[in-house]
Design a protein around this nucleic acid. Structure first.
Length: 503
DNA sequence: AAAAAAT
């Protein structure tokens, strides 16, 4: 099988740049908008998806933000929709997004690429007044971009008819699953005509996701792109063990030491986002905050200011952990160690994009030991320890002192010999954990897993993290043949070969 | 144990 991205490279070499998009069959007004934005050549997913969508075929896309995924469906949709006009309350296409910020990003895309077309869009998201959104619907929209809750709400109030929707996009399906939106999605899809085109995107293809795809799609073209073809992402990580009362001080020291252009600072709790942001501001750092309890207007405003460079540090909850595409972040700080190891990967994936160097630094307290173990187990390597000078030395909590939670035999805990943590003063110290890594992989039993998620093998999700997967994980994935008996074969046959191309 | 999304 030829690798799609090799094709892409070959083609890019042969064709003059300006015709990159034109050769995909897009119409003049869209090509013009692309040219004005300075986009000449399609990314691999665009190259594969655009002709397919124009053909009217369903798409099952395994890709993440940053691969050019959004344009891979917005561009051909604009083309398809430009032929005719929308009727009142009967949108002709529907795009479902898991968070408001992502919905907004997609809407911005439509405005940019559709500037030479006369198409309307409506953005249906919570947190803003419903009146205006309903007015727009009444005038007739071609493209409806929505988060599920608000869409259903408006539908139930009779402000919307979905019987004319010809194109449906389900974006970030895996995240929809995480957030419990799947029943809503199923409900919405049941309201749509069966004769329609469906484009379905997900960063992973866990069995539950695949089940949905099977239910929603008919004879889809499967497209898998793990990351932008061009450049290798470079994220260097670091982890500092500090006392709880030193965390804010440690963060300030790190920020001062590092060459921070702009950074996300993740906290686990919304109230800590608030506290930390105020603290940083008090210490004269340029900081703003973003979490889901803020008024929508403030969420958007802060994000815009951050993107515009007016704020240097954005303190945030996991609302910003995935999908959000902010160019050129120099750093990601984990002020708190995320509880889910997967979230670590998503968070640090916000930096090091588009080939830039990115630094991902995590502050851990002695109580975070288990969480750090879990992360290092998932990413397959220890996070290099980084000392913060001038703070009280601390050591990891003894493993025994923390109740080993739930199921499974306590003895099966990863890395039983669990040596004491690296001394705080140590520089970039990796060996101890390195020895512990390979062994513990299978220490967990199926019943041990968190409820709700039905992924196959415990650590399978490495495959298909899309461009969010840091370089080191790609290396590991290639070397993964031992993934073993318990993976229950969920990673599709057709998926692996595509996935390999990236590394 | 927490965050997201509907009010």
């Amino acid at each position: 099988m030829p690798h799609p991205q090799e094709d892409a490279a070959a083609e890019a070499a042969e064709t003059p740049p300006a015709s990159g998009f034109a050769s995909l069959g897009l119409s003049e007004p869209i090509l013009k908008a692309l040219e004005e934005k300075g986009y000449l050549n399609p990314t691999p997913i665009q190259e594969q998806a655009i002709p397919t969508v124009l053909m009217g075929r369903d798409v099952l896309g395994c890709a993440q933000t940053g691969t050019g995924k959004t344009a891979s469906f917005t561009l051909p949709m604009l083309d398809i929709l430009s032929g005719s006009r929308a009727r009142a309350r009967m949108p002709r296409s529907l795009i479902l997004e898991p968070t408001r910020e992502l919905a907004l990003q997609v809407a911005e895309n439509f405005v940019q690429y559709g500037k030479h077309l006369k198409l309307n869009h409506a953005l249906l998201i919570g947190g803003e007044s419903m009146g205006e959104q309903r007015d727009v619907l009444t005038r007739g929209v071609d493209v409806l971009i929505a988060t599920p809750g608000r869409l259903i709400d408006i539908f139930e109030r009779g402000g919307l008819l979905l019987s004319d929707v010809r194109v449906l996009v389900i974006d970030e399906a895996d995240r929809m699953l995480d957030m419990g939106f799947i029943p809503d999605i199923e409900r919405i899809v049941s309201l749509l005509p069966t004769m329609r085109q469906t484009l379905f995107f997900s960063a992973t293809m866990a069995p539950e996701i695949r089940r949905l795809a099977d239910a929603f799609l008919s004879n889809p073209k499967q497209i898998t792109v793990s990351r932008p073809a061009t450049v290798a992402t470079t994220i260097t990580e670091g982890l500092s063990l500090v006392a709880t009362h030193d965390k804010r001080e440690a963060l300030r020291r790190l920020i001062r030491t590092e060459d921070v252009q702009n950074a996300l600072v993740f906290c686990n709790r919304k109230r800590d986002v608030d506290i930390l942001c105020k603290s940083l501001t008090r210490h004269k750092f340029s900081a703003g905050m973003l979490h889901g309890d803020m008024p929508q207007s403030a969420r958007f405003a802060t994000l815009e200011r951050f993107k515009a460079g007016e704020i240097r540090l954005l303190v945030c909850s996991d609302v910003a952990a995935r999908g959000i595409d902010i160019g050129g972040l120099s750093h990601v700080f984990n002020f708190d160690v995320p509880h889910h190891a997967e979230d670590y990967v998503h968070r640090i994936g916000r930096t090091g994009r588009a080939g830039m160097q990115g630094r991902a630094l995590t502050l851990a307290t002695p109580a975070d030991r288990a969480a750090v173990d879990a992360i290092e187990l998932l990413i397959g390597h220890p996070i290099p320890r980084l000392a913060v000078d001038g703070l009280d030395p601390v050591e990891w909590e003894e493993a025994e002192s923390r109740g080993r939670r739930r199921g499974g035999k306590p003895a099966a805990k990863a890395a039983p010999p669990a040596k004491k943590a690296p001394k705080p003063a140590a520089r970039a110290e990796t060996p101890p954990a390195a020895e512990e890594q390979p062994a513990p992989r299978r220490s967990r039993e199926p019943g041990n897993r968190r409820g709700g998620r039905e992924d196959a093998g415990p650590r399978e999700p490495v495959v298909g993290f899309g461009d969010d997967i840091p370089a080191f994980m790609q290396i590991r994935r290639r070397a993964r043949p031992a993934a073993g008996p318990d993976t229950d074969g969920q990673d599709g046959k057709d998926q692996n070969e595509d996935t390999e191309i990236a590394a």
